[in-house]
Amino acid sequence: MLPALVRKTWRDDRSSLIGWAVGVAAFTGIYTSFYSQFQGAAELKQDALPQGMLDFLGIADMLSPAGYLQATIFSLIGPLLVLMCAITLIARTIARPEEDGGMELMLANPLSRAAFAWQRVAAAGSALTAIAAIPWILLMIVVPWIGMDISLSRVAAASAGLVALVWCFAGIAFLVGAATGKRGAVLTITGGLAVATYMVNAIGGMLDGWHWVRWLSPFHYFIGTDPLHTGWHPVELLTLVLLGAATTTAGVILFDRRDIGV
């Protein structure tokens, strides 16, 4: 039996969880199933944009199945969508109930702060994982269905990267929320970090002598390895997962030690 706090957290977040799930599913489904119709338009777009712009947007070529999936699902909008979901949901674990006072009533119960934090993050994290895995599940169905010529294992590798990326940023968002108790801080710091590290990965690859900065960006470990062409990169994925685990643990420790609601 799951702890009551976990089940009630899901229940409290129910409507927004359903909303995000529907949104991510619609986005993945619609983009992928437009593959065949999109080919002509893609050719035009490719001609219209300068190469530097294409590199920055992560759309090297939109004609091959790998290039198309990279451009639509995995380069910009997909990560943006699931990261927005991650940041807003994680902001609800500690920062929001601390700001509006709803946490006080819970923490007055015989439940250690660490237990409270772990149960909240377990509830939000599991829901988040399910949402981030939606593109994975859908692509496993849609790709063979519409006859895209790409190995499912490679699609799975990129999809797993998306889940790992979400874990990494969810951990960072949780750390900020647990340490500050401020919802605004979670949104701006984590969001800012996501944008900055996305830029670092995108620009770092384009400037000679600056390739190394990409190693600082979580996006590099997610998509910089080009999983749609090269398949699984366990070390990179593990790096993201460990970063998420480390920041989450640090968040629980800091939360356990600070004053609440001041």
Partner: peptide, 25 residues
């Protein structure tokens, strides 16, 4: 807190509840 809160119940001055749960929940 895990031991101390076995022996007390608390009502805050400004009660905030989780918005989407019912009173019964």
């Amino acid at each position: 807190v895990t031991r101390a809160h076995q022996v007390l119940a608390y009502v805050p001055g400004d009660v905030a509840l989780w918005p989407h749960l019912t009173g019964a929940e």
